[in-house]
């Protein structure tokens, strides 16, 4: 792949820069046409961009909330799967449970990444993030609950005493029917 990129780079002979550099200072070398006042355009332009930015921020905030809610669907899905898996320990139920545990954990690890595209100083991401975390924690709790119902968590007395060796006896007694 690296090689391929190299080939393409060296094969470039010419290029057109389509970027609008009308506002760039470098384009100021060319004088404005007569009757053109840059100031008004600049003003208009800034108005327009502000509006645009607001819209974008709104959109981002909205998207962030949407993203924050995605684990909910997952949660329902997981719940359904768990119900399907039943409460006996076998391969399927274990697989489901561990995926139910793994998904929220991996999601929580990548919380920053998930909300990266919506990062904006105008957008408050705390709310969506908290929701996202809460929902994932909910998923995790569901997974743990499932693990418990499968009996894989040491929450019972039996889990702690099942390998407890018998207590020593103080007295020793032997004997029986006399040898014939």
């Amino acid at each position: 792949m690296e090689k391929g990129k190299g080939v393409m780079g060296s094969g470039r002979r010419w290029a057109v820069d389509f970027s609008d550099n009308s506002t760039a200072p470098s384009s100021r070398d060319i004088p404005d046409p007569p009757g053109f006042t840059r100031a008004s355009v600049d003003q208009d332009d800034s108005n327009l961009t502000r509006q645009k930015k607001d819209a974008e921020a709104n959109w981002k905030a909205q998207k962030a909330w949407e993203v924050a809610q995605t684990p909910f669907k997952n949660l329902l899905m997981m719940g359904f799967m768990m119900w399907m898996a039943g409460s006996t320990v076998h391969l399927f139920s274990i697989g489901i449970t561990f995926s139910a545990l793994w998904q929220p954990i991996s999601a929580l690890q990548g919380v920053g990444k998930v909300f990266e595209p919506y990062k904006d100083n105008k957008v408050d991401l705390l709310g969506p993030k908290l929701l996202f975390i809460a929902l994932n924690l909910g998923g995790l709790a569901l997974g743990v609950w499932k693990l418990n119902t499968l009996g894989l968590l040491p929450t019972h007395a039996s889990d702690w005493v099942s390998s407890l060796s018998p207590a020593q006896e103080v007295e020793y007694s032997g004997g029986g029917i006399s040898l014939q």
């Binding site: 009996g151 019972h156 007395a157 039996s158 889990d159 005493v161 099942s162 390998s163 407890l164 060796s165 018998p166 207590a167 006896e169 007295e171 020793y172 007694s173």
Partner: peptide
């Protein structure tokens, strides 16, 4: 004897009376 307890259904536990005497 490996253990003094016997785990029965519903994770309940019963303690065996293990005595050599």
């Amino acid at each position: 004897v490996h253990t003094q307890s016997k785990v029965i259904a519903d994770q309940d536990v019963m303690y065996k009376y293990i005595s050599r005497n």
